[in-house]
Design a protein around this nucleic acid. Sequence first.
DNA 1: TCTTCTTGTGAGAAGTTCTAACTCCTTCGC
DNA 2: GCGAAGGAGTTAGAACTTCTCACAAGAAGA
Lengths: 215, 215
Amino acid sequence: MAKSDPTTPRERYRTQVRAEVMERAWEQIATAGASALSLNAIAKHMGMSGPALYRYFANRDELITELVREAYRDLADTLRAAAATGADLAGLARTLRTWALADPQRYLLLYGTPVPGYEAPEDTRAISQEIAVTLIDACAATLPQGAPASPLATHVADHRTWAAGHPAPPEALALFLSLWTRLHGVLSLELAGHFGGMGFDAEVLFESELATLLS
Amino acid sequence: MAKSDPTTPRERYRTQVRAEVMERAWEQIATAGASALSLNAIAKHMGMSGPALYRYFANRDELITELVREAYRDLADTLRAAAATGADLAGLARTLRTWALADPQRYLLLYGTPVPGYEAPEDTRAISQEIAVTLIDACAATLPQGAPASPLATHVADHRTWAAGHPAPPEALALFLSLWTRLHGVLSLELAGHFGGMGFDAEVLFESELATLLS
DNA sequence: TCTTCTTGTGAGAAGTTCTAACTCCTTCGC
DNA sequence: GCGAAGGAGTTAGAACTTCTCACAAGAAGA
């Protein structure tokens, strides 16, 4: 399996350095949050001096964008792998929770406080859409038969530009929206530490929200 | 109503400068996020030079803590005022949404991504608890009669150290936890812009979540 | 072999937080 | 009223940050 890739040694070196920079960046983010991420500190930690990193990332924002892309990619792959091995909607939800708890700051980098003016690049939005599709598929499969024609479903039926290419019925889309927001509600508060000191188990709340959603 | 307060002119001046600093800080936060808040820029904007602000706030963190306290205080007062004028649980929920939409970054400063090591000071946690009590009261009042003994309620019945002093039944506490996480789920994703471009109305989702919670 | 392209370097500008020393003015006690 | 004390503002400066630029050194291709 060697020598089959057409990359030059230089290109391999370049991608390897980029990977190491991103690894160090994840460590910094995990311990001090994304706002404390410092290109300079990463460079010194890697044994090279300051501006050298700008050969690999145009600026701090590009590094962060790359980290966001990597996180989205990883989450999308994790969910898809779970779905491929037969996980139902509840299984996907628990997979999401496990993924989030594994690195809270990584989850919050994707779904936490954004910078006001920030516009996500097109490809990361595509991956985000990929995640949505995986969940919508599971929603369509788990849909309870007695659909009570909720107001949300009728509204979504008329406003489904975001799922224009997906064959799922509006009830599945409505279920997806409820699922997404409820799971994110639990995870966001849990990861931010707002349940700390309250004494109850966030997992019970998570399972409760999940159960009421599937009944 | 003048001259009745025992404050010296100096104290009045001091509190007035602090208030103006915090006002400028809110402007910065609203337009560029909390991470872009700069004491230096605020000072220059106020016509005084850099380190002068350190007479009023020990450091950047203390200013942010003060902003957090003010935001919590404002939210608690807003909710209590709504409750006092007869708002039920749905009314309080909509009050919360209005408050959040009025200044997204303010809401996200309280409930968004935290700095990993940050510990909220005791008094802000007390105000946060005050908000919870207002909502729990409304939950207890709106409780549907047919309590189906949810697993969450039974768990909370055994783990209610956070509401030890409150007479609400565990079903009300369970309802509060569901309410809190669901409303936060919608608001957080909406304010972070994750619904942008999807084409549906977040308010419909908000009302849907609220309706399923009260049925 | 020679040229070109890439990588890393140090210098340095502009920004940040925050400390220290020094004025200046208000306030308080006598 | 007068002098001491304390608060508020100043500039200087250290230690950071991001990021640009000009230059040196190496690897890759002609």
